[in-house]
């Protein structure tokens, strides 16, 4: 079990292959869900590097998804840039913002870092809302899709794209966490002063992990914008950031597969609750699901603070 859990590249390749086959048989509703899971998983993999391995916290990760999405969308709509380059630009933009902000927020730890990243997420969302050039509160419509030659991506292609990115993302992150670099992140998270006293530039490491998590989020955002063709500030609000935390916690913070599992569970659970709740409790709106998501988050933290994957896939220890 353990060897399987750390053989990141082969397992990721198998998953991508299975999904590439699956999308030809699934109804489009489920293909859409698969895409969404892939996009969220990508963000959560990056978040787990920052929170689980480097031991930091971000309650504003949705903002970097938004930056990636808006960058790609603006370049595509206003400059007719292909979303392929838009995704790269989105990642770069998110990375630059994270880099600049790291000098402010990464001076803080734990509770205060959580508050600062939360604040950051909201400030960035306000900018999305108030900046007319990027559509203000009404958002951006008609975002061009990805294309290969004359083939414009459809639902299936987006699902495959999202999961190829998850595969690449997990391969890269897997290499990182199994390298001495990844262990240095763990050292910083476990005993920052002890690591510094040996000469580890912990500030640099935490900054790099933060920027890397923003790159994952930025790419995910660009794919999100093109596959849904429409974005507005509410798509990247505080609640999405909370959802990423939920995915991280459910899967297990210090686990890369946990990120994927967490994303799948949260998305699936959201769908199930949306269908089941009105049947069981007539009159309850589908949005009532957030009650259960909150309860699950609390229950997970009390009962299994290291996440579902802690039993078989925690890297680093053992």
């Amino acid at each position: 079990m353990r060897r399987l859990s750390t053989a990141y590249a082969p397992v990721a390749a198998v998953i991508v292959a299975v999904i590439a086959v699956l999308v030809w048989f699934l109804p489009s509703y489920y293909t859409g869900l698969l895409t969404l899971i892939g996009i969220y998983a990508l963000v959560t993999i990056g978040l787990n590097l920052f929170m689980g391995y480097a031991g930091q916290v971000s309650l504003g990760q949705a903002a970097f998804v938004g930056i990636g999405a808006y960058t790609s969308a603006v370049l595509a709509v206003k400059l007719h840039l292909t979303p392929w380059l838009g995704a790269v630009a989105g990642a770069v933009a998110a990375a630059l913002v994270a880099f600049a902000l790291s000098f402010i927020v990464l001076r803080l730890r734990e509770n205060l870092l959580a508050l600062a990243t939360l604040a950051l997420g909201i400030v960035i969302n306000v900018v999305f809302n108030e900046w007319d050039f990027i559509g203000g509160s009404s958002g951006f419509k008609g975002i061009p899709g990805f294309a290969l030659g004359s083939f414009v991506f459809d639902q299936r292609a987006y699902a495959i794209l999202a999961w190829v990115l998850v595969g690449v993302g997990i391969w890269f992150a897997g290499n990182v966490v199994q390298s001495t670099y990844g262990r240095a992140l763990i050292a910083v998270s476990a005993g920052e002063l002890g690591a510094q006293a040996l000469g580890v530039n912990s500030e640099g490491l935490r900054r790099q992990a933060f920027v890397l998590s923003a790159v994952y989020a930025g790419i995910a955002g660009a794919v999100y914008a093109s596959s849904f063709t429409y974005i507005d500030p509410t798509s990247f609000g505080f609640l999405l950031s909370v959802n990423f935390v939920l995915m991280s916690v459910i899967g297990g913070l210090r686990s890369l597969w946990g990120a994927v599992i967490g994303a799948a569970i949260v998305v699936a659970l959201g769908q199930i609750l949306q269908t089941v709740i009105p049947l069981v409790l007539p009159g309850a709106r589908g949005d009532f699901q957030s009650f259960f998501l909150g309860v699950i988050l609390v229950a997970m933290l009390i009962l299994m603070p290291r996440g579902l994957t802690s039993r078989f896939a925690s890297d680093g220890a053992a």
């Binding site: 909370v242 699901q289 009390i302």
Partner: peptide
């Protein structure tokens, strides 16, 4: 994180 979960749950 727990208080965050409580926040979301109470709103729901």
């Amino acid at each position: 994180f727990i208080t965050l979960g409580v926040d979301v749950a109470l709103r729901g």
